[in-house]
């Protein structure tokens, strides 16, 4: 059996990055910000690699919509073990429906068993692209999946829901968006990093009108600096008094 997977990945600021709003009030200031492969997309790459390894044969193609800088995260995925990459270039930053349209347009002509996504991009925090792309492609999708297995041409995926797990059965080909769980990502080996340099990375223009979303960004209201109520167990009564009389939460 050959398993063919497509993995959609995004370049995002590292979780530790200090985010500053740029002068235009609509974008973030990239200076000094380290950019990485979206952590959830690492789970997606890992899942695709394991499908291929489990089957013994297959192909893993990674796609990213972004500017030239996104080539970097595609190389990271290639270094982890993906076979080929396509950068769908867009000068304006796209998100949501615009990304889903560009991805669907590229995926439509391809042959695949799986399209893998991360559960969310940690920059826009949208959790939209996987379900939207699947809708545009007309394929089944399960979102926020932490584990899945394939048997008899069907996928059984487990999703985390409030107070439990939802078990979803999907027909192939299908899309899955992954969260933390069974697919702890591997590190790229030195050999992998060297090999990635020779793997194909195609660049083309992203489909669509190229218009980005227009946003107004603002910082959250500052939380008032808190106070230390006291030290040790003797501070407990005062804490409870504050919670009852000042905060009125209990």
């Amino acid at each position: 059996m050959r398993v063919k997977s497509i993995v959609c990945v995004k370049r995002v600021p590292d979780t530790e990055a200090r985010i500053r709003i740029a002068g235009d009030g609509a974008s973030i200031d990239p200076s000094g910000v380290k950019f990485v492969l979206n952590p959830y997309d690492e789970f997606a790459v890992e899942a695709a690699l394991r499908q291929k390894e489990g089957a013994g044969q297959g192909e893993v193609t990674v796609l990213s919509v972004g500017d030239g800088g996104s080539a970097e995260v595609l190389r990271t995925a290639l270094a982890m073990g993906a076979d080929a990459a396509v950068l769908l270039k867009s000068a304006a930053p796209l998100e949501g429906l615009a990304v889903a349209k560009a991805l669907a347009e590229e995926i439509r002509g391809r042959e695949y068993d799986f399209v893998f996504f991360g559960m969310k991009a940690i920059d826009d925090d949208l959790q939209a692209v996987p379900a939207m792309t699947a809708e545009l492609l007309g394929i089944p999708v399960a979102t926020a999946v932490f584990d899945f297995e394939v048997a008899g041409g069907k996928v059984t995926a487990q999703r985390e829901i409030e107070g439990g797990t939802e078990v979803v059965e999907l027909k192939l080909p299908c899309a899955l968006s992954l969260t933390k769980g069974a697919f702890e990502p591997r590190y790229a080996s030195l050999k992998g990093i060297m090999a990635a340099k020779k793997k194909p990375l195609e660049e083309k223009a992203a489909a669509g009108d190229g218009a980005g979303t227009s946003l107004k960004l603002q910082y959250p209201p500052e939380r008032q600096a808190g106070r230390i109520v006291g030290e040790g167990p003797d501070a407990v009564p005062e804490l409870l008094r504050l919670l009852r009389e000042e905060a009125r939460v209990i």
Partner: peptide, 10 residues
């Protein structure tokens, strides 16, 4: 956005 480091209005 950015896990609450920034908010956007659209």
């Amino acid at each position: 956005r950015y896990s609450g480091k920034v908010f956007s209005t659209v």
